[in-house]
């Protein structure tokens, strides 16, 4: 990929580094491994969700159902572990199968019925939230020794930071996503469809398979995020993670991915997540600011990044016009 497409990624990275340095200058404790470890743990489920969202947005789509899918996954796991004696690993496999299948079904509807992803996934959002309510309207605690064991897994870094399993899972997801997006034909097809679905089809990209695959990835990763969320809260609650889909979209956009599709990097999303987490941490450290400031700052950042993309777009067209003009003269 060329310099100009990577520019938004570099800007996101620079924003994160700058913000971190500024925070650490004010509160030196923020540079500790403890804060860094918590940053990863606290944002693991959102980070994993945002990976799926990156696939979707790169293809020019949107997935509004992921927040509900996470809540459904949580309630499903809590209820099934309470009511039956199956092993959590089996339950995990089952729920991943359901959520991946659910995503694939949405992708199929989007492709075959030529429906806008916004509407289809909006319907999916209500459906999953409703299913979660049907299973239980109350917060169901999860008590299982396997859960306790998973939660007890961590690597204690010098300085007292505890890097937990969930954070590692998130990092692994990012690495896997990078490989898939840049090193497989499926990944290339995601970018191709995001550039222009029609042209991609004319060039031989299997559009049906790719679209279904993209939403299956998003659904499956939302399921994985749901599992991580139960490990984080030890409960399943149908009212949980309302609006998480919007946080995920925000992270993707702050990470430099074009909302119109075709351009962006999953690494950018990672730093988008870290920036959002950092703002929250800063507010906790400050202690006097209302937590709503998180939303305000994220709103401002989103706006800034959208303006930046617009500006880069203008700069590119201007450069091409210049190029063409100089071609014509020579």
């Amino acid at each position: 990929m060329s310099q100009s497409t990577k520019l938004p990624l570099y800007i996101t990275l620079a924003t994160f580094v700058l913000a971190f340095v500024l925070c650490a200058a004010q509160y030196p404790a923020m540079a500790s491994t403890r804060v860094v470890a918590n940053l990863l743990t606290d944002n693991a489920f959102l980070g994993i969700t945002a990976v799926g969202m990156t696939f979707v947005i790169l293809s020019g789509g949107i997935d509004l159902s992921v927040g509900s899918v996470i809540a459904f996954t949580g309630v499903f796991l809590a209820v099934i572990l309470r009511e039956t004696s199956i092993h959590p690993l089996v339950a995990f496999a089952l729920v991943l199968l359901i959520t991946t299948g659910f995503g694939a079904a949405m992708g199929g509807i989007i492709h075959y019925l030529e429906m806008p992803p916004f509407i289809v996934t909006l319907a999916g959002m209500f459906l999953m939230r409703g299913l979660a309510y049907v299973l239980s309207t109350e917060s169901v605690p999860i008590t299982h020794e396997f859960y306790d064991w998973l939660q007890s897994l961590y690597w204690k870094a010098p300085g007292g930071g505890r890097f937990r399993l969930t954070g590692a899972l998130m990092l692994l997801t990012y690495v896997a996503a990078m490989i898939v997006l840049h090193r497989t034909r499926f990944g290339q097809n995601v970018y191709a469809i995001g550039g222009s679905a029609q042209t991609a089809q004319l060039m031989g990209v299997p559009r049906a398979r790719t679209t279904i695959g993209i939403y299956a990835v998003s659904g499956g990763l939302a399921g994985l995020a749901g599992i991580v969320y139960t490990l984080y809260t030890s409960a399943g609650y149908s009212l949980a993670t309302v609006g998480v889909e919007l946080d995920a979209i925000a992270a993707v956009v702050i990470g430099g991915t074009l909302l119109t599709g075709g351009s962006g990097f999953v690494a950018g999303t990672f730093f988008g997540i870290l920036i959002m987490g950092l703002i929250q941490t800063y507010i906790v450290f400050d202690g006097t600011l209302s937590s709503w400031w998180t939303k305000i700052v994220i709103g401002g950042l989103l706006f800034a990044f959208i303006m930046l993309q617009k500006g880069l777009g203008w700069a590119t067209t201007a450069r091409i016009r210049l190029l063409t003009a100089s071609d014509a003269r020579s």
Binding site: T5, Q188, Y191, A192, A200, G204, V205, S263
Partner: peptide, 14 residues
């Protein structure tokens, strides 16, 4: 062709 891919990626897509 796809303007958001590189020249090489366009040549070899698929």
């Amino acid at each position: 062709l796809l303007p958001n891919l590189t020249v090489a990626e366009n040549l070899f897509l698929g």
